[in-house]
Amino acid sequence: MEFIQVTKDNLEKEHICCAISNNMDVQVTSKKSWLSERFDEGLVFLKSEERGKCFIEYIPAEYAWNPIDAEGYMYIDCLWVAGSFKGHGYASELLNYCIEDSKQKGKKGLCILSCAKKKPFLSDPKFLKYKGFGPCDEADNGVQLWYLPFEKEAEPPKFMENARHPHIDEKGYVLFYTYQCPYNAKYVPVLENLAKEKDIKFKAVHIKSREEAQNAPTPITTYALFCDGEYVTNEQMNDKRFLKLISK
């Protein structure tokens, strides 16, 4: 498999969204805009030369849009291999590239979000364990921080206190999200319109800076839905899923 590193120079022409073929789709343009501002911070986006779900995205942890204390580590935003790409060792190839690149850049190790059992949009803990990762911190909602230290004495990363106990003092549905995930530009307005139509109290909080993300009340900032102050899910909602949720 040949891989392509997406950079500022080729960002506009490269296909970066695993599910959307139209480069002018608002979901893709919003993601590309977010990426373009991260490259100078050391973000690496490596993908298959073929279109599909086969890529890794990582960044020095101090620039991660997550409330983690992981100085000297590299944070993996996303490692995703699915569909016809599964079963060929591509996930290992992408991860190995990240490991070698991070070592050359003098990093202490890698860290990534996961959980004890596989959840949507979080890395598979079985794969991480197989590759030598282990959990080093856990929030009250079960989201875990996993790490792969390059040296045994490396201090483990941890969640910031504001993310350790996901809770907000606000009634109704509150959604925290970023444009790091390419689907939000389309589906957040869907929920806003549906909530208005059904007279449901709903507020969307668009996280627009690293500082806002690192002070968020949740380990997951790409998409985190709360209801009456309590964390509900990081699984992206369309109209049908949201209606099913509120019917409960």
Rank of each mutant, 00 (worst) to 15 (best):
Y231P: 01
T222M: 13
E211I: 11
K208P: 00
P219S: 07
K203G: 00
T218Q: 01
K208A: 12
A204P: 04
I207H: 06
T221K: 07
E211C: 01
K203N: 08
V232N: 02
N234V: 01
F226D: 08
I207M: 05
A224P: 04
T222F: 14
Y223Q: 03
A216W: 10
V232K: 15
H206C: 14
C227N: 14
A204K: 07
Y223T: 01
G229F: 12
D228R: 13
I220C: 03
Y223E: 03
T233I: 06
Y231V: 01
S209Y: 13
A204D: 02
I220T: 05
K203D: 00
V205D: 00
P219D: 04
P219C: 08
K201Y: 02
P217K: 03
L225A: 06
T233S: 15
E230L: 13
Q214N: 07
C227V: 11
F202K: 04
T221P: 06
E230H: 11
K208S: 09
K203F: 07
F202E: 02
V232A: 08
R210E: 14
V232C: 05
A204L: 07
T218I: 02
A213I: 05
A204V: 02
A213G: 08
P219G: 04
V232M: 13
S209M: 11
R210H: 03
D228C: 09
E211K: 14
N215M: 05
Q214D: 07
E230F: 05
T221W: 12
V232I: 15
T233K: 13
F226H: 11
N234L: 10
I207G: 09
A224W: 08
P219V: 04
G229E: 10
Y231K: 01
Y231D: 00
S209G: 11
T222D: 15
K203Y: 06
E212R: 03
P219T: 03
E230P: 00
N215I: 00
F202V: 06
T233L: 13
A213Y: 13
E212I: 02
K203L: 09
H206E: 13
A204H: 07
V232R: 14
Y223I: 01
A204F: 06
S209N: 09
I220A: 01
H206Q: 12
Y231G: 01
E211N: 09
A213Q: 08
R210Y: 00
E212V: 03
T233R: 12
A224R: 08
E235C: 04
P219H: 11
T221N: 07
T222K: 09
S209T: 15
